[in-house]
Every structure is written in C-alpha cells, then in structure tokens.
C-alpha cells in the first residue's frame, strides 16, 4: 500500500486570540497514516481538535506546528505554504466555506485547476466538465456564474465544496464536517460526493461527529480524537459503538 499522508507525533499550537502572545496547545502528539485507496474517519466531541488537525494539514497560518512531522508522499509539508500543499494534491472541504464576492464559481474553479495542474485549461472543455459535474451534484447550471458562496444556503455551499473536489481531483481529500448543524440534505451531498470521488488512487480523511454521514461509505479506519489526542482506533465497528454509547466510554482513556 502506498502511503499518502504520514503524521507522527504531531503537536499543534494556536495563537490564543484572547491572551496575547501566549499560545495554546491543541494537538498533543497525533499519529496518523493514510494510504491510497482508503477512507479514514476522525471522530471526536466538540473542541477535541478535529478542525485544528485539518487546518494544520492544509497549513492555516493561525496554527503552528510545535513538534512532530507531517509528510505527504514522503515529502515534509511543514515548510510549504497552503497553496503549495494544494498543488501537491491535498484538498480541504471547509466546514464553513468563505463567501468571495465578485469571483464566479466557474472562474474560481478554473483558476484553481490551472494553479493545481500547472496547465492552461481550455475553456470549452472545462465548461463541459463543469456542467457534467454540476449535473451529477444536482446543482443548477446558473450557479457557475454566481459569486463564490455568496447568498448560498448551507447545503449549496457544501455542494460547491464537493464540486470543487470533483473538478480538482486531489490525491487526498480532507472533509471537515464538524458542523453539527448540517441537515439531512447536506449529509447526503457529502456522502454521495465522496462515493463518486473515491477510488484506488486517492484517499479521504473525513472529520465529523455526526456518524450518519458515514453510513453509506466503506470506511477503512476510525480514529477517535479527544482533548488533542487519539484515544481509540479501530474499524467501522467503532462508529456504531460511538453512535450508540457516545464518547462516554472513552472518557477514562486519557
């Protein structure tokens, strides 16, 4: 199995907005390996550090790597800027996607695709692909000419994220689905999108505390994150257990 993502003893701090110049450790030594062809899930209660893990992998400037290593296809990621990581083939589907007035969905995706592939993307062919992908996601074509996420509902924003994932074809897709407010519709969009996207050559890392999202997916591995540490690992059976019992049985694991 080809290793895609290899995280060892990762410690991440964040500049605390309230107390100036002090930083707070959020991830306290994480080990995680994701291979090609796999779907991994990270579960955990609110504030356990799930979103921080996603942001740290994508290189959000607010999060600092205080220790450990973060490799993608054998290459150290820690010094790379966010867009360089994206160009390596990492994609993050945001929990709350940004609204960007003035930039159309089509323009955004085409610019991104050019950046990621380093190729000049032909308009006609691109439009055709975009149309097909939008159809797949039951998105109205008119959305291609709307400004990025401006005035989109929660479900529409989610669809737009998945659309970008399908169009950009990353090697590793990170899906931050922490938002407990996701409705049934949005959950369906995400799991269908992942099903469509996933194949032998790529991998998904899905973060959620909503286990319904996983029902339709063939999950390979589950990691449970609590208070900045992975406290349990296992197969899909862990999802069911947590679904029934909550995280309570793991409280003592620390």
């Amino acid at each position: 199995m080809e290793k895609l993502l290899n995280i060892k003893n990762l410690q991440v701090t964040v500049a605390d907005k309230e107390a100036e110049d002090t930083s707070k450790e959020i991830l306290k030594g994480i080990d995680l390996q994701v291979n090609k062809g796999e779907i991994h899930v990270v579960l955990g209660p609110n504030g356990s550090g799930k979103s921080t893990l996603m942001n740290a992998i994508m290189g959000h400037p607010k999060y600092e790597i205080a220790g450990g290593s973060l490799e993608f296809e054998g290459e150290d990621l820690t010094e790379l800027k966010t867009f360089e990581r994206a160009r390596k083939g990492i994609f993050l589907s945001f929990q709350t996607p940004e609204e960007i007035p003035g930039i159309t969905v089509e323009n955004m995706i085409r610019t991104a695709k050019q950046a990621v592939t380093g190729e000049n993307i032909k308009v006609v062919k691109f439009r055709k692909e975009l149309k097909a992908a939008m159809k797949e996601l039951q998105m109205d074509e008119s959305y291609a000419q709307r400004y990025m996420n401006v005035g989109f509902s929660g479900g529409e924003k989610k669809r737009n994220e998945i659309l970008q994932m399908l169009m950009l074809q990353p090697k590793l897709a990170l899906l931050d689905e922490t938002d407990s407010g996701l409705d049934v519709d949005a959950i369906q969009i995400v799991s269908n999108g992942v099903k469509k996207f996933h194949n032998e050559d790529n991998a998904c890392l899905i973060i959620t505390h909503n286990t319904r999202i996983l029902k339709q997916l063939n999950v390979d591995k589950v990691h449970v994150l609590m208070q900045g540490k992975i406290v349990a690992e296992g197969g899909p059976e862990l999802i069911e257990k947590i679904d029934k019992e909550g995280f309570g049985f793991l409280q003592g694991a620390e």
Partner: peptide, 19 residues
C-alpha cells in the same frame, strides 16, 4: 480558502480585490 485551492497568496489577494 483560495490558497487551499492552489492559488498563490499574491494571486489570492488580487483575485479578491478584482472580485
């Protein structure tokens, strides 16, 4: 957000201003 889509920081800024 734009950088996570592979756009460089400079380009991201000018995209936002153009937008």
């Amino acid at each position: 957000y734009l950088m996570s889509r592979g756009v460089s920081e400079d380009e991201a800024r000018s995209m936002i201003v153009r937008g």
